[in-house]
Computed example of a mutant assay.
Amino acid sequence: MMLFLPEMMAEAQERYEILRQIHDNGPVGRHLLAMQTKLSENTVRKHIEKMEESGLLFSRPSGMSLTTKGESLIEPLAPYFQKSPSLSDMENKLQKILSMEKVIVVRGDLDDTPAVKNEISQEAAFVLLRLLRDNFVIAVGGGPIMAGMAEALPSLHMKVDVVPARGGFGNRVEYLPNFVAARMAEKLGGEYHIIHIPDGLSPELFLRVKKELPQFREIDRLLSRTDILVTGVDEPEDQSKWLEIPEDVRRRLIKEKAVGEALGLYADIHGKILYRLYNAGISREDISSIPHVLVAAGGSHKGPAILAMARAGIRGTLITDEGAGKTIIQGSAGFSL
């Protein structure tokens, strides 16, 4: 049996996906191919040049189509490059366990391979693009995966509004919800709106500040008509905002075994909300009225957090990796309600 280096297999996978997309949708242009395959236009161009040289496809003004030789490869190569049954089986199991509308699993474990973060971000960007329409309002959270998703989006010219799903703490400015919202709006060609209040204020101070800042009327108006929410999931102690929580609350959360956090909500493995940060963004009560909710998180250590927040009501389409998926499936029986 011929052995392949990982980069050779990755290249073969990309070329097969290009062939499959042209087979299904041809004639098709390079820009659309890049969106459909989640590859850069430069990568698509290089693959197309090689495959044209090999006689697998040809170009016309209307787009690219497969030659007879290219068509003849689709079916024989499908067992090697289409999503494996084991991955599809994991998605189905996770969908039932988490009561998600849909689950998308990428290969690998972010805990072992940091590059898996990019795969999750790109997949989240692709899901977002399929849902996006002019005049939509998008609320987006912060963190590395959200920032990567914004960068993975193509440059478009859409009439959309992007708002942070919450305020935020953190030393990495590029991971804050305000920054991610601004970058996403820039890539999509839309407008962005900033939340000037951080999470973590007392309820009294939060309401007073919100009342005294008239620009929050516009933020509240946009948040009330959010069409797509994109958020991550964290472990409570993994984030810088953990230190902004009062010490007595931190002790209580540890004692009561908080394992997950999303949108300022802290929950135990059964989905019981143990604490909530007051913030000017999306609240738990808002989620049920949002048509599309995307949750993106990965790494085997995030499994319990994803499970906890799904049980707490943070559900929709989950984009995750095999590492988190295995942890959730293996632990769900032991963590049953």
Rank of each mutant, 00 (worst) to 15 (best):
R60D: 11
P304D: 05
F179Y: 10
I290N: 07
S40G: 15
F4K: 12
V295S: 05
E41N: 13
S84Q: 14
S99H: 13
A147T: 04
P154Y: 09
L32F: 13
F136L: 08
D109R: 03
L98F: 04
T320R: 00
I145A: 10
E49F: 11
K83P: 01
P203K: 04
F58H: 12
P144E: 15
E212Y: 12
Y175L: 11
V259M: 04
I138F: 09
D220C: 03
Q36C: 12
N279G: 15
H292Y: 13
G167D: 02
N135V: 09
R208P: 03
R15L: 03
L253A: 04
L129Q: 10
E53I: 11
K326W: 11
R252H: 08
A305V: 00
G303F: 00
T67G: 01
G323M: 07
R208H: 15
G298H: 01
G264V: 07
I22Q: 06
E119C: 08
Q82V: 00
I197M: 13
G108D: 06
F58T: 14
I306F: 04
D199W: 00
N135W: 07
V295D: 01
M309Y: 01
E261W: 02
T226P: 06
L205N: 14
H301D: 06
L73S: 09
L66C: 09
G148C: 09
S155W: 10
I120T: 02
L56G: 06
V163T: 11
G63L: 09
R166T: 15
K50A: 15
L176A: 11
L263A: 06
G143D: 03
E186K: 00
F58A: 12
I219C: 07
R107Y: 13
L56C: 14
R45A: 14
D286K: 07
L277I: 12
K46I: 07
D234Q: 07
A150G: 03
R60I: 13
E14G: 05
V106A: 07
G298S: 06
G303C: 05
D161W: 08
A262N: 03
L19N: 04
